[in-house]
């Protein structure tokens, strides 16, 4: 107890001193590295113009925005647009779909690439490894339009999936998979896995290469088998990479775009395929209700930032690591 307070006291004593030195050294650094700072100015401006200046447009969310009027003439409506948004049943429907699909994508996008990278790392034949890696990330470059076409054909009544299921006698007659609304989230996640696993595995493969080979040798000397080595060396070795990617992806939970859903979806599954971005497009820009569209995307941005900070805070607390 005593030692603890003593330690705390010493810490508080130290702190102001520390910040002072920090400040002084920052000024010193600034003068010393003035050219570096000068060189970064254009990019700071670029960031400001493209990422911060547009935030000014959020004011539209609190107006009944009319294109013809100047800023001073706009009618201010306070939180009306948000009230409307939170009273719309459809909003909760699209929010549910967005969260469900990105949640599934988040989990699958974590497990499959890691699994794939670890397994590929265990392959001894170099040519096979290279060829597999190249083939597996190629789908990343195929546009969603084409992927949607392939998936729809594969899952159609006379598609290969139904053929295999029939052949295995698992089903009596072909199933119209794309018409089953409860399966839609699965179809989206599945196609996402097919398209992105190889590409996302690259970063984990790179992280694995960075692990000290001596660790494996030492483990082998100690009699660790393959699975032991994976569990005790490979996975802990790429832990921080996994963490960083996971936290960053949580920040993107609500902003997943709508290409997949729009291209794979059809009228029969629309209750499960509509997502936030599509909703903002349909009920905002398309019908010239700019303020409402702005309110929706403002909501998305704010929630995304909150998610990111929460996730990061939790990791900081429990895993003692942080990306910020």
């Amino acid at each position: 107890m005593e030692t603890l307070t003593a330690a705390q006291a010493s810490q508080t004593k130290k702190r102001p001193k520390k910040t002072k030195t920090n400040k002084r050294s920052f000024l010193k650094d600034l003068i010393q590295q003035k050219y570096l700072y000068l060189m970064s100015i254009p990019f700071v401006i670029w960031l400001f113009v493209f990422n911060y200046y547009p935030i000014w447009g959020w004011t539209m969310a609190f107006q009944n925005y009319k294109p013809a009027r100047t800023f001073g003439e706009q009618e201010w409506v306070g939180f009306d647009n948000f009230v409307r948004l939170f009273h719309d049943d459809q909003f909760y429907l699209v929010l549910r779909n967005t969260l469900a699909m990105s949640g599934m994508g988040l989990v699958a996008g974590l497990i499959f690439p890691i699994l794939f990278a670890v397994l590929l790392n265990e392959v001894k034949s170099m040519p096979f490894k290279r060829i597999t890696q190249t083939i597996s990330y190629l789908p990343h470059f195929v546009s969603w339009v084409v992927v949607a076409g392939i998936v729809t054909s594969l899952l159609s009544l006379d598609g290969i999936v139904n053929d295999i299921l029939m052949w295995l006698h698992l089903i009596d007659e072909p199933i119209q998979i794309m018409a089953k609304e409860h399966w839609f989230w699965g179809v989206v996640t599945g196609s996402d896995i097919w398209k992105e696993t190889g590409w996302n595995a690259i970063i984990y493969l790179a992280a694995i290469t960075g692990i000290d080979k001596e660790l494996y040798e030492a483990a082998r000397v100690d009699g660790a088998g393959r699975f032991r080595q994976i569990w005790n060396i490979t996975l802990p070795g790429i832990r921080s990479t996994i963490m960083v990617l996971f936290v960053m992806n949580i920040g993107h939970l609500l902003a997943t775009g709508y290409e997949k859903q729009m291209l794979l979806g059809n009228d029969l599954v629309s209750d499960y395929s509509q997502v936030l971005d599509l909703y903002a497009l349909d009920y905002g820009i398309k019908i010239a209700h700019f303020s409402y569209g702005t309110a929706i995307s403002m909501f998305t941005s704010v929630v995304s930032i909150l998610l990111l900070f929460t996730a990061n805070g939790l990791f900081k607390k429990f895993a003692k690591e942080s990306i910020m």
Binding site: F50, N51, P54, I55, G57, A255, G257, D277, A280, L281, I285, G293, T294, S297, T300, S301, S304
Partner: peptide, 10 residues
Amino acid sequence: MKLRSTQSLS
């Protein structure tokens, strides 16, 4: 956010 930046770009 994404929508906004696409819009301003266009």
